[in-house]
Amino acid sequence: MPLPSALPLPAIENLLSGGPDNLFNYLVLGALLFAAGIFAMVSRRNAVGILMGVELILNASGINFVAFARFGGHETGFHGYDGQIFALFIIVLAAAEAAVALALVLAVFQTHRTIEMDRVDELKM
């Protein structure tokens, strides 16, 4: 027989319990960073600016992983460190991605003398 959930409260009241240091605030911050990163990726002309948007998005996902690891892990059978491990791997991936992407930026600059993505249009007729 399935057990009823431990706390049958409505969502927001539940999330806001426990002062400002609660899951809701971290998730909203993560969403804001993610939206800012998307905006930078879509609208920036400078390739390095686009890369900064990607870094913002990766940070947003890291915040979400760690917040869920602290506030939500135990009921799903994880021991609360899985989220931190995932955030750690995200940082590793971000470092590798930044190294390769900045190398690409330099390679583009060497051939085109600019890193503005609007003007790097060699394939256009």
């Binding site: 959930s5 431990a6 706390l7 049958p8 409260l9 969502a11 927001i12 539940n14 999330l15 319990s17 426990g18 899951l23 809701f24 998730l27 909203v28 969403a31 869920f68 602290r70 506030f71 939500g72 135990h74 009921e75």
Partner: peptide
Amino acid sequence: INRLQVPFHET
């Protein structure tokens, strides 16, 4: 985020 239903709290 608004629809999160699971009782997320430190337990």
